[in-house]
Simulated assay, not measured.
Amino acid sequence: MLTILFPFYWMIKTSMDSSDALFDYPPRFLPASYDFHGYREVLNGTSIGLWLWNSFIVSIGSTLLAVVAGVSGAYGLSRFRYRGKSTLALVVLTTQMMPPLVLIIPIYTIYIGLHLTDTLLGLVIGNFAFSLPVVIWMMKSIFDTIPVEIEEAARVDGASWFFIMTRITLPIALPGLVAVSIYTFINGWDEFMFARTVVTAADKWVGTVGLASFIGVYVTPWDQILAAATIFTLPPVILFLLVQKHFMAGLGAGAVKG
């Protein structure tokens, strides 16, 4: 636990140090002074509020799209029998074997033709496409653990498949759905390479691109970088604390069938 928490503690500690105390040797394990200079510079001299808002829009948008489409696809793979089902499942799995870096340039070329560069919509669609296969496979494993007899009883009573999926199966799979949603949100929140390639306009930067902009040619303001990183870390941490019970339950939702 200490090895996990220490990097976060050091990030917060360094973000509160003065510029002169950053490179003290031996290093201090407590702030030399609670200067908060880095936070003042970040909040007053950068557009971190806009970066966080853009990250929030992209993460929420891609999560909603991936969850809606992924739940439908996963339910179809888990419950229905049709020709080509195994091939479709293999194709979905194969997409995860291809490094995203290989796809960035072709996608960027397509985006130029569709005028999606320098837009948050382009980032939403890109993150949605990268997250969708994982959402499908995670939700399929969760749906496979839910007894099909429950749904068959509802079918006998005349319920439609859409009603069964939304009113019966999804409430049972809620912990797993929350875990998948958190994964997708954090995946969009932390994504850098695609956002750095597709977006060049400063007013469309997301948080990861904004953090990279602090790196200078001759000087790198580490106190400001770590102050911005601390602020950037808060939203996913708060989200996790709010739904941690569902998240922990969802981690094992697809581990055991029956």
Rank of each mutant, 00 (worst) to 15 (best):
T3F: 15
I4G: 07
L5E: 08
F6P: 00
F6M: 11
P7K: 10
I12F: 14
I12W: 08
S15R: 03
M16R: 01
M16V: 14
D20T: 05
A21V: 07
F29V: 00
A32D: 14
S33A: 14
S33N: 14
S33C: 08
Y34I: 10
D35R: 11
E41K: 12
V42G: 05
V42P: 02
G45W: 11
T46P: 08
T46M: 09
S47C: 02
L50W: 15
W51D: 03
V58C: 05
S59D: 10
L64D: 00
L64M: 10
V67S: 09
V67K: 02
A69P: 01
A74R: 07
Y75C: 03
F80W: 13
R83T: 05
R83F: 15
R83H: 11
K85G: 00
K85P: 00
S86R: 13
V91L: 15
L93H: 03
T94N: 13
T95D: 06
M97E: 09
M97I: 11
P100I: 03
V102C: 12
V102K: 09
P106A: 05
P106Q: 08
Y111N: 01
L116Y: 13
T117W: 09
T117S: 04
D118I: 02
G122M: 04
L123Y: 10
V124G: 02
I125R: 06
A129S: 14
A129R: 03
A129I: 12
A129F: 13
F130E: 03
S131P: 01
L132W: 11
V134R: 11
V135R: 07
V135D: 09
V135P: 08
V135L: 11
I136C: 07
M138S: 01
M138H: 01
K140C: 03
K140A: 06
F143C: 01
F143W: 07
D144K: 05
D144H: 07
I146N: 06
I146C: 06
V148I: 15
E149F: 10
A154M: 07
A154Q: 10
V156K: 04
G158W: 11
A159D: 12
S160H: 11
I168V: 13
I168F: 11
L170P: 01
L170R: 02
P171A: 03
P171R: 04
L174W: 15
P175A: 04
G176M: 10
L177T: 10
V178D: 06
A179V: 01
S181K: 05
Y183V: 00
T184P: 07
W189A: 00
E191S: 01
F192S: 05
F192D: 08
M193W: 12
F194D: 00
T197S: 12
T200W: 12
T200E: 13
T200M: 13
A201Y: 07
V206E: 06
G207E: 09
V209Q: 03
G210M: 06
G210S: 10
S213G: 01
I215W: 14
G216V: 04
G216T: 05
V217P: 02
P221Y: 13
P221F: 13
W222C: 04
W222V: 01
I225T: 02
L226S: 03
A227D: 06
T230A: 14
I231C: 07
F232G: 00
P236G: 06
V237K: 11
I238H: 04
I238T: 01
L239W: 05
L239Y: 08
F240M: 14
F240W: 14
L242N: 07
Q244P: 00
F247M: 09
F247T: 00
M248Q: 12
A253I: 04
A255Y: 13
K257M: 05
K257L: 02
